[in-house]
Computed example of a mutant assay.
Amino acid sequence: MNGRFLLVAAIIAEVVGTLALRASVDHSAWIAVVVVGYIAAFTLLGLTLRAGMSISVVYGIWGACGTVLVAFLGMVVFHESLSGTALVGISVIVAGVVLIETGTGHSKPAKPEDVAV
């Protein structure tokens, strides 16, 4: 399966889980969605790595996209606010991921048997 598709699905699952975590503050029934969201996110991350994407790129994109989406959706859904400083921080996160993505060679990751423990 396509690694980028799996990564997008992992990001969506993580964002859903995190938003449900915030919603569980008001209604404990959302805890089930939190658990399912995070299990799905980490499973999809593992599948993304298995598809051949490097961990630095996968984790950077997953973390940054999740942070940005949760911050903006928190504003929309939960009426939270973002300061100018927070917006600068989000911009720095996005710039960092772009730098990681453009600075990473897209070589195949090492096979598990090639990694020294």
Rank of each mutant, 00 (worst) to 15 (best):
V76T: 12
A95T: 05
A86Y: 01
V68Y: 01
S28H: 13
G46K: 09
K111R: 14
A29L: 11
G105F: 02
V58K: 10
V35M: 09
S56E: 06
K111M: 11
I11M: 03
V8D: 01
E14Q: 13
G74F: 08
I55L: 15
E101M: 03
V117M: 13
V57P: 04
A86W: 02
W62Y: 15
L82V: 01
R22L: 09
V33C: 14
I90N: 08
T85L: 01
T43Q: 05
V92M: 13
L49H: 10
I55D: 09
V92C: 10
G74Q: 07
A10E: 07
A40Q: 09
T18G: 07
S28Q: 13
I11V: 08
G89L: 06
K111C: 05
V15D: 04
H106W: 02
V88P: 00
A40F: 09
G37K: 10
Y59C: 07
S81P: 03
V15F: 13
Y59P: 06
G66E: 04
S56M: 04
L87P: 04
V35C: 04
L87R: 02
G66Q: 02
A95F: 06
G46W: 12
A23R: 15
Y38C: 04
A40T: 08
E113P: 02
I31F: 15
A116D: 11
S81C: 06
A41G: 11
A10S: 14
I11C: 03
A13S: 15
I61G: 07
V117K: 13
R4V: 13
G89F: 04
L45F: 03
V68I: 15
I31M: 13
G63P: 05
P112C: 03
S91V: 05
L47K: 15
I100T: 11
A86H: 07
I55Q: 14
V92A: 14
A10R: 14
T85P: 00
L47D: 03
I90Q: 06
T104H: 12
G105M: 07
V36L: 14
R4S: 13
G89R: 10
L47N: 12
A41Q: 08
V97D: 01
T48F: 02
D26T: 08
T67D: 00
E80D: 11
N2Y: 06
P109L: 06
V68G: 02
S83Q: 00
G66I: 06
D114P: 02
P112G: 02
A10M: 08
V58F: 06
W30T: 10
Y38Q: 03
E113L: 04
I90T: 07
S28E: 11
G96W: 03
T104M: 10
V92H: 05
G37P: 10
D26K: 15
A86Q: 14
I93P: 02
V97L: 08
N2E: 07
T104D: 11
A10Y: 07
C65M: 09
G52I: 03
S56F: 01
S107K: 15
G74E: 10
V92E: 03
V98H: 00
T85D: 00
L45W: 02
Y38K: 05
I39L: 15
V58Q: 06
A29K: 12
S81Q: 14
V88N: 00
P109N: 11
I93V: 15
A116P: 08
T48H: 03
V88D: 00
L99K: 00
A13F: 10
